[in-house]
Design a protein around this nucleic acid. Structure first.
Lengths: 215, 215
DNA sequence: CTAGTTATACGAACTGGTACGTTAGTTAGC
DNA sequence: GCTAACTAACGTACCAGTTCGTATAACTAG
């Protein structure tokens, strides 16, 4: 944030990195709130301290801006996955830990979940461009494969479950709770993200995967 | 260019019910494919054998048409739920049966799942209008409550699980498999709706809920 | 150190096209 | 001959992307 060169002009300075970051912040909120087609480039520009021209100057267009937003959102969950510490946990505790990390991340980042939902409406066409640049799934799959291998060696886990399916079951629970909370809450009168119920659902998620995996 | 209606033209009769149904069919496909903002009233009209004015004549506007589409889609899953026969099944088999019915319905109606995702992007604002007219959640909850009560009486089920949470867990799995298949398939290289894997995932869904519920 | 030069960062106003909804009029059927 | 069902063509607002021009930082030669 501090001026890298001169100390004058506290604001209104030329700083492309800052401008880009501010556009990305606003665009993330807008795209998550309104979807791709529902978002307006003019509106995103109006919510920044710069103009629409800068969006085209720095990103090229609405679509590229959206891809940049997606890229940053996925980078953040990979960072969360990378920080999990579970070398000293037994396999059962380790899968529960992973489920809880996923649960907490999705609960804390509903805008990421919304972007993923939006992306699926668009048949993942933008994520398809992303995976050509970064490996989004590798880290979590490698982590789970290691735990499953240990668990099977110790005779704790069933042998017909693989890492991708385990991740799928955990994601299904954690994504649904956030992604579908509006229709679910409206139809069943239960707020899935009510803070008073968070511990209940975190435990439910852990129980689900641990019991499913049990030999 | 086109001659008057001197030629036969076997159909082309005035039939408001048929016109409404045709508009609804096309609109369902369009909204499910492109989302609400991504769908075009002109395009929907072009895909019917009538004109855009008829959409406004019969439904009032884009939003009301979308609500009518949602209403019909929800009516269909309630019909599927109503037809489940499980009076002669023990509680464990009965929950598995319900999970399978949900699994099969969602697998067979991806357009419904997409509409639900789209609706959540819009904070369920249209479903909120729907629930004032019809009770969408009652039937499945009543069904599950009955099974859970029997299961608890027989000492088969844990006592800290209620019908809404059980439905949530089943829905999470079945909805995720369809709703997120594009991003998941792109990132992890596994097609969740590959017919060759359908039996595997149906069994996985049943195992999940049965094991979670076990006392 | 400084005057001249260039690359980068920025903004106001505009344009071409698109999309929802309407106006005005037509036809079928009782 | 009255009305529900229907059609073509239009109007207005909006929106992605562009044009053209300006200001500032960074660099270079003298």
């Amino acid at each position: 944030m501090a001026g890298p060169r001169t100390v004058d002009t506290p604001e209104r300075v030329r700083d492309s990195a800052r401008t880009r970051a501010e556009i990305l912040d606003v665009a993330t909120a807008e795209f998550a709130a309104n979807g791709y087609d529902g978002s307006r480039v003019d509106e995103i520009a109006a919510l920044t301290r710069t103009t629409k021209r800068m969006i085209y100057y720095h990103f090229g267009g609405k679509k590229q801006l959206y891809i940049a937003v997606l890229e940053r959102a996925y980078a953040r969950i990979r960072a969360a996955e990378r920080q999990v510490e579970l070398d000293d946990l037994d396999p059962v505790a380790a899968v529960r830990r992973i489920a809880e990390v996923t649960f907490d991340h999705h609960g804390a980042h509903p805008e990421f979940i919304r972007l993923v939902s939006i992306e699926n409406i668009h048949h993942a066409e933008h994520v398809k461009e992303l995976v050509e640049m970064v490996d989004l799934g590798g880290p979590i799959v490698a982590l789970l494969e290691d735990i499953l291998r240990r668990g099977r060696q110790e005779g704790l886990f069933r042998s017909d479950a693989d890492a991708i399916d385990v991740h799928m079951m955990i994601s299904a629970f954690c994504v649904f709770r956030v992604a579908n909370r509006h229709t679910f809450g409206t139809i069943f009168g239960r707020d899935l993200v009510d803070p008073a119920r968070t511990d209940h659902y975190r435990a439910m998620c852990g129980d689900m995967i641990v019991r499913y995996l049990a030999a």
